[in-house]
Design a protein around this nucleic acid. Structure first.
Lengths: 145, 145
DNA sequence: CGTGAAATACAATAAGC
DNA sequence: GCTTATTGTATTTCACG
């Protein structure tokens, strides 16, 4: 992780579709070197994927919520996330320290769909939900800082 | 948003670096059609960007936390997110309904750096933090479902 | 580990269906 | 609005320093 690696990481976090030529220009190394470095970062697990970011509202899923879970013992969704494989509305689950065992981000078409999902999640634990009004900072790159 | 658009969205959420040729092969339309459709999705605000996903642990930032904020009146960070412009550790802020005004995701190198950040955030409101133990579901694509 | 030069593959435009 | 064809450029691999 030298200065070149961080520059590549920064550029790819801002725009994952930049070509190796364009990256080479910005980082001031040759295109093959860029290709080699990027592959190294991928294989080392630093870059875990490249994703198009989709605005849920723009595709008819304007109802977003964060659900805090206190799971009932061994069926905890943090240890069995596959329980949610048939819930495409669930887009993220993070396991936490403290009395809240996880926070689940859900993206739904409507309040009633959200309600159905909360019923489903309620089967795994105590839920407490809050709707997302907006996302003042949707993301930030991880930097060398 | 017909079936082809959803297929393109799905493919680009899984791998944002797929070429138009490769996308054309998978979705069974011609490359120029892919280019046209993808550009339409970008301009319509459906695709808001393409980002490389970075594993914070792999770059020396293993201490991740979710901080719930109850801001003090008008200096609420949800209405003035620029207050956090000089905090690169803050990677996401979502505004919520309910008594918690926002949840802030922070990515830090160490517990002591997390502590410094909590002091800073404490200047804007009451904080309640929980550390991220793992991410059982780090993300999921938005689908036609 | 980095650079340079080869063949291959890709993107973009324009024209036609 | 989708496809085919063409042109120019980008990407990749290999060989070399």
């Amino acid at each position: 992780m030298d200065r070149v690696d961080w520059a590549l990481l920064g550029a790819l976090q801002e725009d994952a579709r930049l070509s190796y030529n364009e990256l080479a220009r910005r980082v001031h190394v040759s295109p093959p070197t860029v290709a080699q470095r990027v592959r190294r970062l991928e294989n080392a697990g630093v870059i875990t994927g490249y994703r198009a970011a989709v605005d849920p509202t723009a595709v008819g899923r304007p109802v977003i919520a964060l659900v805090r879970m206190k799971c009932y013992g061994p069926r905890c969704i943090t240890v069995h996330p596959e329980l949610l494989d048939d819930c495409p509305e669930v887009v993220e689950v993070v396991r936490l320290t403290g009395d809240i065992c996880s926070v689940v981000k859900v993206v739904t078409t409507s309040i009633s769909e959200l309600e159905r999902l909360l019923v489903r999640l309620g089967g795994y634990g105590e839920t407490s939900s809050a709707m997302v009004l907006s996302t003042p900072i949707p993301w930030r790159p991880v930097t060398a800082g």
